[in-house]
Design a protein around this nucleic acid. Structure first.
Lengths: 254, 254
DNA sequence: GTACACCTTTACGCAGCGTCAAAGTCAATG
DNA sequence: CATTGACTTTGACGCTGCGTAAAGGTGTAC
């Protein structure tokens, strides 16, 4: 039995465009061309198309399908296992998305408070991801992979109560710092309290505290626009002020 | 505070290309342009970008984000609810995919037999979907929506045992038909047995049996290339043979 | 012979940017 | 003051998997 594009398309339930495309990318070439240039497919092509559509149903990309069907020695089961891993990752992300969307809806309907929002489980993973994505590279360069991995590990293992505590601390740092900034003295009592709170907050993320790393981070708050923008949002100059306070707090010299 | 593209990009952790693109599609326009044509963003734009990125994290399309951020009266919660439904649908499909991939892996490793494969829960839904996609339109045209919906409903509610039975029946139809075809007489005993088995098989899918619908389907087996290809695979002419046998079986005239 | 269904290649469009390329601008340096 | 290097601009192609014309040749039935 021989088929033209439309006949084969109807047989398989796909469009002629798709068949031409599969020809174009070399995934399914016709058995021969008729004298007038028509594509003619045979039984072998039908079987191969079935195979292609089967993998397509499973969500495998045409590129990967190509590898599977063109090289007979290719390990289809192995490819599928890798594919499964990708799908599982996808579902994980999707679950996170859904959780966050639902959380946002709840928030907008007043069924949740702001702090509840941050408590939310899925958010923690997102926090880690975001941190990694946004700051991971620089921090890794400055402090090495180990520090960052440990920090993330710690964040992951944080209980809900610890998470509440760390959120409360972050707010207290911000409030104390804002008050201290108004007084203008980085060596003053309030500024030093802010530095101390900042250290406490930090130890929730770092497995080991060191004065050097602390001032290093403080300096980065000034050098890196993103951190600077965060601290300077309400009162410009706050990032520098915090850095100075931390230098004094640690007793290290610039 | 004013920002150029790169500064704002670093602040938000996105590329300058993205900012230019957002300008292009009108989702985030700069506050003003400098004398030399540079894009200059202000605080309002920073806030808006935060909003945009927030919804983006939630997987909302830029088109929908545009509606949300451009019209202040737009119901963000409602949009998110619709979005959530889409995500849930996506997850459903993903779960089906994963189940099928895992089933295929198991199959290739010999941990499952062919019939086990068809038993598999997720496959039933896929069966319905495929049927609907491939044959739904024509069957609906011929027999009306009601018949098809009832058929799908029945398939969905099928227990595993029923599913085994219907599979066994389908195989028996094929085997009997193949034997009868060799004898060549559609009025013969074996051919009539095949027609009867075919009726039994059919009643698993149709809520009501009628001779007219039965011969209608049999005729379609001949007219429709896809069905014809299925029945004629081993022995060309089988589709016609089955049709003739069913005509005789029902006692209706062509 | 002519109508009509079928075939061909060519090419734009879709989402959301990444990634050059060519050319102008700004601030700091020698 | 000129050069350098970091920054900016617009323009345009590329990615996935086809859908959807457009413009033209082919097969066949009446």
């Amino acid at each position: 039995m021989e088929y033209t594009v439309q006949k084969l398309g109807r047989l398989a339930g796909i469009s002629t465009r798709t068949l031409r495309y599969y020809d174009e990318i070399g995934i399914l070439k016709p058995a021969r061309m008729s004298s007038s240039g028509y594509r003619i497919y045979g039984q072998a092509e039908v079987d191969r198309l079935q195979q292609i559509l089967f993998y397509r149903e499973l969500g495998v990309s045409l590129d990967n399908i190509k590898e599977i069907v063109t090289s007979p020695s290719f390990d289809g089961a192995k490819a599928l296992k890798e594919h499964r891993e990708q799908l599982l990752d996808k579902r994980k992300q999707l679950d996170l998305l859904i959780a966050n969307v639902e959380k946002t809806i709840a928030l907008s309907e007043g069924r949740m408070t702001m702090t509840d929002k941050e408590k939310f489980e899925g958010f923690k993973q997102q926090l880690i991801d975001d941190n990694e994505k946004k700051y991971g590279k620089e921090i890794r360069e400055k402090y090495g992979d180990e520090t960052v991995d440990k920090s993330n590990e710690k964040l992951k293992n944080m209980t809900q109560e610890e998470h509440n505590e760390v959120t409360r601390l972050a707010n207290e740092v911000a409030a104390t710092l804002a008050e201290a900034f108004k007084l203008g003295d980085p060596a003053g009592e309030l500024a030093q309290k802010a530095a101390d709170l900042h250290k406490q907050w930090l130890t929730y993320y770092w497995s080991e505290y060191s004065k050097e790393a602390h001032v290093g981070l403080a300096q980065m708050y000034v050098d890196d626009e993103r951190f600077k923008a965060y601290y300077d949002e309400k009162q410009p100059g706050t990032a520098e002020f915090l850095r100075d306070a931390i230098y004094i707090y640690t007793g290290l010299k610039k």
